[in-house]
Amino acid sequence: MNHLYILLTILFTVYGQIIIKWQVQLAGAFPQNGTEKVNFIIKLLLNPWVMSSFVCAFLAALSWMAAMTKFPLSYAYPFMSLAFVLVMFLSALFFKEPVTIPKTIGLALIILGIVIGSKG
């Protein structure tokens, strides 16, 4: 049950990253003009989806605080690397980003590191 706090931290974090990417992509290119930049940012900040990603960032922080009451930081923190794994696969699925051999090798090394680190 204690590992659920780590899992929730990861899931809330990944949700936020995917939602922000999605909404920024829909918003278009970042403007060049100073006033247009401010309007662009304000529009994104008031976007309900972006707001939900901020709520999830807050929930991730709360989950992480709970995890820190149960585990040493040196044990729990490597699990945060699973966010990289999930983001890569979800980015490929939702945004058609390429999954290359170097990325796959890197992710395999991350997972191997988590396995080894969680044993020690």
Rank of each mutant, 00 (worst) to 15 (best):
L93H: 10
I101S: 04
Y15G: 09
P48K: 13
L86R: 03
N47D: 15
A60D: 09
Q25N: 14
V38Q: 10
E36R: 15
V38P: 04
C56M: 00
S81A: 15
L73I: 06
S52E: 05
F84L: 15
A108C: 09
G117R: 04
I114F: 00
M65F: 13
L93P: 09
W64Y: 09
S118D: 07
F40R: 08
V50C: 13
Y5P: 01
I111G: 02
P98G: 00
G28C: 12
K21A: 05
K21F: 02
T13P: 03
Y5W: 15
E97A: 12
K37T: 06
W49S: 14
A76H: 01
G28Q: 09
L73R: 05
C56E: 01
I41P: 08
L82H: 00
A66W: 10
V99K: 06
V55E: 10
Q23N: 06
Y75W: 14
I18R: 09
G28I: 11
S118I: 03
I10V: 15
T9C: 11
I18W: 07
G106V: 01
K70V: 09
L26S: 13
G28T: 13
A67S: 12
F40S: 05
F12G: 13
K70M: 10
F54R: 08
F79D: 04
I116S: 06
N39I: 07
L112N: 02
F94D: 08
I18P: 02
L46D: 06
